[in-house]
């Protein structure tokens, strides 16, 4: 139970204790989020869309035991490190990826008061820490002493920096409209603003920033190295990319990092474009209580779109990927930025 929920029950706690409780909640969100996305999308949706029988079988009902079995398998695995590996860097890389995922959740608001720390530079911070995972991926690819891992790591680095820019440009459109970088401020702005005078549902930015929303989704897909942008981990080309040499818990970290980041990006997209925790006409304490559920519903909607693309599109080529970012998404993002600014100033 969260700190503010406790306060509404009449229990007063200091900010230090509140911070400790909130930190613990966040530490639980990542594994929980990774599990939920893994179950709902990776197992159920993929199995149905691609007619996969294997993941539907273990345990009986829709293969509910599959992920638990996978987890148990990882726990029992030896911790192998190839002979030529740079041992310290190799060991640290998965931790860097996972920690960068944790840090994103600091600023995501789950209710008017349910946020660990609503930083003034919230969006900027979220994008900055989420891109720290590039360092972990490069570390993994470089230190593995494996040709395929090195290729995968370099591809990942090239891809993540190329798609960082469309992501930033898409977010700037929202920041212009909201006039603040604080995620809570952006949610409140979406509740209070109007679209050319029509204000009965506020202004969810997916309506006025639809181009930005699409750019954000595509760029997030590439940042997550999901199909159609999964060249860094392409099994059929690179055997597995930067994490080919990892086993056991360290591999599990990469897995959790990937799905935790998918969870985080869905939450950011839901907050920036779909109104976050807010529902029209819901205010005050009630918003604190149902906020997390509303955010979760919106987040799953965004995640559904991302995983849908993942399960149905074929893989692009590396040069197509770079060209798509630099020749299409970035000019489009810049145009979107200027048009948004024009509307903001003119109206």
């Amino acid at each position: 139970m969260n700190a503010v929920a406790l306060t509404t029950l009449g229990i007063e706690i200091g900010w230090g204790a509140a911070l400790a409780i909130k930190t613990l909640v966040i530490l639980l969100i990542i594994p929980a989020g990774a599990l939920i996305l893994g179950y709902v999308f990776l197992l159920k949706m993929m199995s149905h869309m691609q007619s996969r029988l294997g993941p539907m079988d273990p345990g009986g009902f829709h293969g509910w035991f599959q992920l638990i079995g996978d987890g148990l398998k990882f726990v029992q695995k030896e911790d192998l490190m190839p002979d030529g590996a740079d041992r310290k860097v190799f060991a640290g890389a998965p931790a860097v990826v996972l920690i960068s995922t944790f840090l994103v959740f600091l600023v995501i608001p789950m209710g008017p008061d349910l946020v660990v720390k609503d930083l003034d530079i919230g969006v900027f911070y979220a994008l900055a820490v989420s891109s720290l995972s590039v360092i972990g991926i490069l570390m993994a690819g470089w230190s593995s002493a494996n040709k395929y891992a090195l290729l995968g790591g370099l591809r990942a680095a090239g891809q993540l920096i190329a798609y960082e820019l469309p992501l930033l440009l898409a977010v700037i459109g929202v920041v212009i409209q909201a006039g603040t970088m604080s995620l809570n401020g952006i949610v409140v702005a979406q509740q209070q603003q109007s679209i050319f005078g029509i204000d009965w549902i506020g202004n969810p930015y997916i309506l006025t920033q639809f181009v930005g929303f699409l750019i954000f989704l595509i760029a997030a897909q590439a940042e997550l190295t999901q199909t159609p942008f999964d060249m860094p981990v392409a099994e059929s080309e690179l055997v597995g990319g930067y994490h080919v040499e990892y086993t056991g818990f360290r591999f599990l970290f990469f897995f959790m990092g990937e799905y935790g980041t998918a969870f985080a990006f869905s939450a950011i997209a839901a907050t920036l474009f779909l109104g976050g925790y807010a529902l029209p006409w819901v205010e005050g304490d009630l918003a604190n209580w149902i906020g997390p559920l509303v955010l979760f519903a919106k987040l799953m909607l965004v995640a559904f779109l991302m995983f849908w693309a993942r399960f149905t599109f074929p893989r692009l080529r590396e040069d197509q990927l770079q060209a798509f970012a630099w020749k299409f998404l970035i000019p489009l993002g810049l145009a979107n930025l200027l048009v948004t600014a024009l509307f903001k100033v003119a109206f």
Binding site: T23, I26, Q76, K77, E78, A95, L98, K117, G248
Partner: peptide
């Protein structure tokens, strides 16, 4: 808040790796 979260994340990663060290063959 950022510093506490970084420390907590490092702690959790360390805990899981330690657990793995105990269990794995």
């Amino acid at each position: 808040a950022v510093a506490v979260l970084i420390l907590a994340a490092i702690g959790m990663v360390g805990f899981m790796l330690g657990l793995g060290r105990l269990i794995r063959p």
